[in-house]
C-alpha cells in the first residue's frame, strides 16, 4: 500500500494514536506497538513542585521510537492555544502541533473561528499545524488558505464512539480538498468506522478512547490496525458505486429451464 505524507514526511502507518486513558503504562506501550502506529499524540500539563510525572511519561514514549504530535487539548482561547503550541515546540523540539481550540465543554466542539485564527498565527511562526475541526467545508477551506496542509475533521464528538455521523460532509471534504492530507480525528468507536473513513479516501485516522477503554486495548489496537489497512486497501483497489437495483452476479446465459421462464 502507498505511504501517507504529513508535511513532506512519509509514513507507512495510517493509524495515529493517542497516549491517554490506558489501564497502565505497559498496556499503553503494547497497544501502540500492536496498532503499528508511527505517530502518537501527547499533551502538556502543569508539573507539581517536586514532581517527575512528565519525565516518567516521556521516557515511556521515547522507548517506542515514534514521531510525537503534541496537542493543545483543553485550550479555549486563541491565546492559550498559541502559547501552548509554542511550549510544545520548546518541550518536544517539533514544529508539529495538533491544534485544538474548544468551544463547548460538553461536546468538545471545536471553536472553528478561533481555530482558523490560531492556525494562521502559528503557521506564520513556522509551525506545521494539524487542526482538529468539524466537517464543515468552509472552515476546512479557511484552514487550507491559512497554510494547513493537513486537516482533521471529527467523525463525531471526542470519545463518543458514534462513528461517522456526517458521511456526506466528509466525502465532500475529500472531493474538494484532493491535495490535502485528511485525517478523521475523534468519535470513532469500532474498526469498521476506521475502515469506512479510509474507504472514503481519507489519508488516516486518529483515535484514542476506543482503543484505550476497550476491555483488551492491545487486541483492539490490532483490530483497528487491520480495519485501517482493509479500508485503505479497498480504496486503492477501487470500490464499486452503490446502485438502486439488483444486478445478478451469476451468469444469466445458460440458466437451466431458461426457455420456460417468461
Amino acid at each position: 500500500m502507498s505511504t501517507v505524507k504529513f508535511y513532506d514526511r512519509a509514513f507507512s502507518s495510517r493509524l495515529l494514536i493517542g497516549t491517554a486513558l490506558y489501564p497502565s503504562p505497559k498496556i499503553m506501550q503494547d497497544a501502540i506497538r500492536a496498532a503499528g502506529s508511527q505517530i502518537v499524540t501527547v499533551s502538556l500539563r502543569r508539573e507539581a513542585a517536586g514532581g517527575k510525572t512528565g519525565d516518567a511519561f516521556w521516557s515511556l514514549i521515547r522507548e517506542l521510537d515514534v514521531t510525537v504530535l503534541p496537542n493543545t487539548a483543553g485550550c479555549r482561547t486563541v491565546r492559550e492555544a498559541v502559547t501552548t503550541a509554542k511550549l510544545a515546540r520548546e518541550l518536544f523540539g517539533t514544529p508539529w502541533v495538533k491544534l485544538e481550540v474548544i468551544a463547548d465543554n460538553d461536546t468538545l466542539q471545536p471553536d472553528v473561528v478561533g481555530l482558523v485564527e490560531a492556525a494562521a498565527i502559528l503557521i506564520k511562526d513556522g509551525f506545521e499545524v494539524f487542526p482538529y475541526c468539524t466537517d464543515d467545508l468552509g472552515v476546512a477551506q479557511r484552514l487550507v488558505d491559512a497554510g494547513c496542509r493537513v486537516v482533521m475533521p471529527w467523525a463525531a464528538p471526542i470519545g463518543s464512539a458514534k462513528g461517522i455521523v456526517n458521511r456526506d460532509g466528509l466525502r465532500l471534504l475529500r472531493d474538494r480538498l484532493p491535495d490535502i492530507a485528511l485525517v478523521v480525528d475523534a468519535g470513532l468507536g469500532a474498526p469498521s468506522h476506521a475502515a469506512q473513513a479510509l474507504e472514503l479516501g481519507y489519508d488516516a485516522v486518529l483515535l484514542n478512547t476506543a482503543i484505550a477503554k476497550a476491555d483488551d486495548p492491545v487486541a483492539m489496537a490490532k483490530a483497528f490496525r487491520l480495519g485501517v489497512e482493509a479500508g485503505r486497501m479497498a480504496f486503492e483497489a477501487g470500490l464499486m458505486e452503490a446502485r438502486d437495483f439488483a444486478s445478478p452476479s451469476t451468469p444469466v446465459v445458460g440458466t437451466p429451464f431458461w426457455h420456460a421462464i417468461s
Binding site: 499533551s43 519525565d55 496537542n71 471526542i158
Partner: peptide
Amino acid sequence: KSRWAETPLQPGDEIEIITPRQGG
C-alpha cells in the same frame, strides 16, 4: 531554556511549569 539562568523574575510574574503528559 537557554534564558532560564539570565531572566530576572519580577513581583507578580505568572510562571507556568509544563511537562509532557498523556494526550489524545
